[in-house]
């Protein structure tokens, strides 16, 4: 059943140079316990989508339209009070850079206890105990003593574990993870991924995993949504999207990932650069970079749905073209 549904979300940044439509009509749903991978390059609007759900978009940006229906209520236009009651309690977030997400001058226990007590009226001792259990759950050794430490006394991977522990404190329904492994070493990445996978299975939490790294989501996500220039260009079950991409951009992304067996072979790359949001090409925003583009692409294609999959392209790839 659908837990969260984002419908035609519009998040715009009103800058001096003009209106940047960072998120322009994004729709997707998330079922209870499902992991959705939101994939795209930097500037594709994937992080802004995540922040928009919780109303955490900073000035000069704001949600200009659409709905975010969570468990039956629309979060767009909801007051700061009720939204605050939801943040961290039912929808939690994990940020990209663990070096920056914990306040450097506050001890871990302070930061965890305040998170507990922001929503539940419990004693300090009880909140501390819950913090300790949460740290234990994410695999931090000797949590009792670690609680007394400051963030700078932790490594990057450990800090991200602390952030995950904070996100888990209230056993939320949804966790929005904004590139949580990007800033980490590959080995630490793998550890955190395994940890998250285990925790998702144990707690049944649904997750939106925002990333530019297809390798990361391939083993983790149930479904993928690929974003380009503020729009979703392709969605579908992870294996199908990765195995047989329909959108040329998706294929470009997949081919940009280095393959271990092709030693010495040149990597395929997508030509050109991500367009500026202030000056998007007319029609399909990808057409200037697309090898299949023609005159038809100057008109914005609709998201064409076929079974569990959808693609926004006038000339989608066929199965024969994608299977080598």
């Amino acid at each position: 059943m659908t837990l969260l549904s984002v419908e035609n979300l519009q998040t715009h940044f009103f800058t001096r140079e003009g209106v940047a439509k960072a998120v322009d009509g994004v729709s997707f749903t998330l079922a209870r316990g499902e992991i959705l991978g939101l994939v795209g390059e930097s500037g594709s609007g994937k992080s802004v989508t995540g922040f928009s759900i919780l109303g955490l978009v900073d000035e000069p940006g704001r949600v200009a339209g659409g709905r975010v229906v969570f468990d039956g209520t629309d979060l767009v236009g909801m007051g700061e009070g009720p939204l605050r009651a939801l943040r961290g309690k039912r929808i939690a977030m994990i940020f990209q850079d663990p070096m920056m997400t914990l306040n450097p001058v506050l001890r871990i226990d302070t930061q965890m206890v305040e998170a507990v007590r922001a929503h539940d009226t419990v004693s300090h001792a009880e909140a501390l105990e819950r913090a300790r259990l949460a740290l234990e759950k994410v695999g931090i050794p000797s949590p009792e003593t670690r609680l007394k430490n400051y963030p700078h006394e932790f490594s990057g991977g450990m800090r991200q574990r602390v952030a995950i522990a904070i996100a888990l404190l209230h056993e939320p329904d949804v966790i929005i993870a904004d590139e949580p492994t990007t800033a980490l070493d590959v080995t630490i990445q793998a550890q955190i991924l395994a940890e998250v996978q285990r925790l998702c299975e144990e707690t049944g939490v649904a997750m939106i995993w925002i990333t530019h790294d297809l390798a990361v989501v391939s083993g983790l996500a149930d479904r993928l949504a690929v974003m380009y220039a503020g729009r979703i260009v392709e969605t579908g079950p992870t294996a199908e999207v990765l195995g047989a991409p329909r959108h040329p951009y998706t294929r470009g992304l997949i081919e940009s990932v280095p393959q271990g067996k092709l030693h010495g072979a040149r990597l395929r790359q997508i030509d050109g650069m991500t367009p500026s949001l202030l000056n998007l090409p007319a029609g399909c925003a990808f057409h200037p970079r697309c090898p299949r583009a023609d005159a038809a692409c100057r008109v914005m294609p609709d998201l064409a749905t076929a079974g569990p999959r959808a693609v926004r392209c006038h000339h989608p790839l066929t199965d024969e073209e994608t299977t080598p």
């Binding site: 943040r87 961290g88 997400t101 306040n103």
Partner: peptide, 18 residues
């Protein structure tokens, strides 16, 4: 104010006053 840790505190549901 624009630091990630301030935003993260907001995402935790901590009150503006705190």
């Amino acid at each position: 104010v624009p630091q990630d840790y301030v935003k993260f505190a907001r995402a935790k549901g901590v009150s503006r006053l705190r």
